[in-house]
Structures are given as structure tokens and as C-alpha cells.
């Protein structure tokens, strides 16, 4: 675990560093800008889906789905980050405690 933490930390740091060391003309390439702008959208959307519906290599619908729905409502109401996460966790914990969903 420590090795992967080290490599990932070093790698993300080098990514930051590279931007200051590379020649500016890379920025002028529209495809580069577009791709780095879209990558987080792809990955974060996939992470939302997987962390909500996957359990190892199987689909699993449980109380997390309800938590995500509550998070969407909170985001639509322009709630701050922490509130979004708190209401998602709290609503999930609540329906579990009530025994309505696993």
C-alpha cells in the first residue's frame, strides 16, 4: 500500500510540475485542452456509477442508490459540498437503521 501511495503521490506531483516546465505552445493545441477538460468528467461520472451500483463484479442496488438520489436533490438546491455528502450518508444510514433497504 505504501509503495502505491508513494508512486501515486509522486506521479500527481510530477503532473503539476510538468505544467511549469513544459513549453507554453502545448496549450495552443485545442485537442490537448479539450481532452484534459473532459477526462475528469468521464472518470468522475464513471466513479459515481460504479461506487453506487457495483459490488465487486456484480450489480447491487441497495441504500446507496437512495443516498445518491438525495445528493442530487441537495446539489440542485445548491447545497455546499459537505452538506451534500452528509445528507447522502445520513439518509442511507437512516433507511438501513429502519430496515427498509440493505
Amino acid at each position: 500500500m505504501w509503495a502505491s501511495i508513494l508512486i501515486a503521490s509522486l506521479g500527481t506531483y510530477v503532473e503539476k510540475l510538468l505544467g511549469y516546465l513544459l513549453p507554453q505552445r502545448i496549450l495552443e493545441r485545442e485537442s490537448v485542452r479539450r481532452m484534459t477538460g473532459l477526462l475528469p468528467v468521464s472518470l468522475l461520472a464513471a466513479l459515481v456509477a460504479i461506487q453506487t451500483f457495483a459490488s465487486d463484479q456484480a450489480f447491487l442496488i441497495n441504500a446507496r442508490v437512495l443516498g445518491l438520489g438525495v445528493a442530487v436533490v441537495a446539489l440542485l438546491l445548491r447545497a455546499p459540498f459537505l452538506v451534500v455528502i452528509l445528507v447522502a450518508a445520513a439518509s442511507t444510514a437512516l433507511v438501513r437503521w429502519l430496515g427498509w433497504m440493505p
Binding site: 461506487q51 443516498g67 450518508a89
Partner: peptide
């Protein structure tokens, strides 16, 4: 018990 597994996708959604 605290619904932390649901906090993970909610966190990614808030970032997205």
C-alpha cells in the same frame, strides 16, 4: 452504519 459507502459516490458527484 453511518452510510459512509453512500458518501463516496455523493462526493464524486459533488466534484463532478
Amino acid at each position: 452504519v453511518l452510510g459512509l459507502d453512500a458518501a463516496i459516490p455523493a462526493g464524486f458527484l459533488a466534484l463532478l
